[in-house]
């Protein structure tokens, strides 16, 4: 009865767009409800929501993405002097505009991490990897990245990592293809 759990294991690979309604019959396995009379066979159909979002960046996030394309990391200086990366457009405390952008990293330190042993098809890596918050050198805050470390044993808080840039870069967060432990080859 109590068998349902987090559903990561049901992750489906991306499929081609199926907007056409193709109902199939699902036999309702659940009858322990007091709700509803139960029509017996419940109709089921897929819906894929897919938008080609084109987002305007504004000058600050635009500069961050420009930096990625040029293989540099850009942060912004907050009112209290901290360097924030990805750059905050607005002071996270006061809400005022931030306008001073500085270069940081690109190598940095893992401040926390989580090991994904079974990647989802949407994840940036198709093999086990670590999500990490990475504080680039010269920055005071951390950013999210995927660390390609091979095995969980190779990960630890405080380790140094460095970005591996994508060959084709367009000004997108995925211009960082992955991060790797600095011990695995430095500025690869």
């Amino acid at each position: 009865m109590f068998v349902d759990q987090v559903d990561l294991s049901e992750a489906r690979a991306p499929t081609s767009v199926r907007r056409k309604l193709k109902p199939v019959l699902l036999w309702s396995a659940v009858t322990d409800t007091t709700q509803g009379a139960g029509a017996g066979e419940i109709l089921s159909a897929p819906l894929i929501i897919e938008y080609p979002f084109k987002r305007t960046t504004g000058p600050v996030i635009g500069a961050f993405l420009t930096g990625l394309r040029e293989r540099v990391l850009i942060g912004s200086r907050a009112e209290d002097g901290r360097v924030i990366v990805p750059p905050a457009e607005f002071d996270p405390v006061s809400g005022n505009d931030l306008t001073e952008l500085v270069e940081v990293g690109p190598a940095g330190v893992v401040t926390t991490w989580a090991w994904v042993s079974a990647p989802h098809a949407k994840h940036p890596l198709d093999r086990p990897f670590a999500w990490a918050q990475i504080r680039p050198d010269g920055a005071d805050t951390s950013m999210l990245g995927a660390v390609d470390a091979g095995a969980m044993e190779n990960m630890q808080t405080g380790m140094r990592v460095t970005p591996v840039w994508a060959d084709e870069r367009e000004g997108h967060i995925c211009d960082i293809a992955r991060w790797i432990p600095e011990s695995d080859g430095g500025n690869a």
Binding site: R55, T56, T57, G58, V60, E89, F90, S94, G95, N96
Partner: peptide, 28 residues
């Protein structure tokens, strides 16, 4: 039709900052 010069946050703040200025207030 398209405010291509600002981010979503920038759009929201453009209105908010004008309202704050009109009220002679700051975010604080």
């Amino acid at each position: 039709a398209t405010r291509g010069d600002v981010s979503m946050a920038g759009l929201v703040r453009e209105a908010a900052l004008r309202a704050l200025a009109d009220a002679q207030m700051t975010w604080a």
